[in-house]
Amino acid sequence: MSQRKNIIEVTNLVKKFGSFTANDKLNFTVPEGEIFGFLGANGAGKTTAIKILSGLSKPTSGKVIVAGYDVSKYPNKVKRNIGYMSQQFSLYNDLTVRENFRFYGGIYGLSNKAIKDKTNYYLNKLEMQEYGNKLLRSIPLGWKQKLAFSVANMHEPAVVFLDEPTGGVDPITRRQFWELIYESADLGTTVFVTTHYMDEAEYCERVSIMSEGKIVAIDSPAELKSKYGVDTMDDVFVSIAR
């Protein structure tokens, strides 16, 4: 594990809004191809950190390197090398499935041929060929979610950020979704995921837990459980984050 190169390096990241400190000296690294769970109660500062990592917001101080680029100096280089999927999926309901691929492929500068190939590849993989020309609004939530993940991966980013990707989805679909995540991690994509489901935290190679702007624990789920002497990630979370 120590052989892999780090794709995310965060050193002393501080973000302040006025007198409020949202991120207080965060330090962590995420190696290539890892599935990294980023946990924390609501308001712990997760969203702020993700915004900074994805180049949407500038840190007050500290250094953040994503995919080899300093986020505050080259936000656009970073943006080109990351994928992003939010709880709301970021797909357009009034476009067809193919048009959604087309659009996002287009804004990431993929060639027409590449877009077509990728679209066919993902539709085949998800066994959704016959839905290609259907409007997105007519497609069930679980499928939309898989599509959104595919779209976020279409330009082969080094890191994908998943911001609570499985909200409102049934357990079976969630499990299928995690299979997709594993597949893309096997191909070398780093997956940076936030979630409120602690069973999902167990799927991660490592997790960090934030509380009041600080990272209070960071390790593999197994290590964390033994360290806090509990059986589930749920209990770990409750004993730390309250």
Partner: peptide
């Protein structure tokens, strides 16, 4: 959000 995260 997705648009802002994109290179646009």
């Amino acid at each position: 959000e997705a648009l802002l995260v994109s290179p646009l």
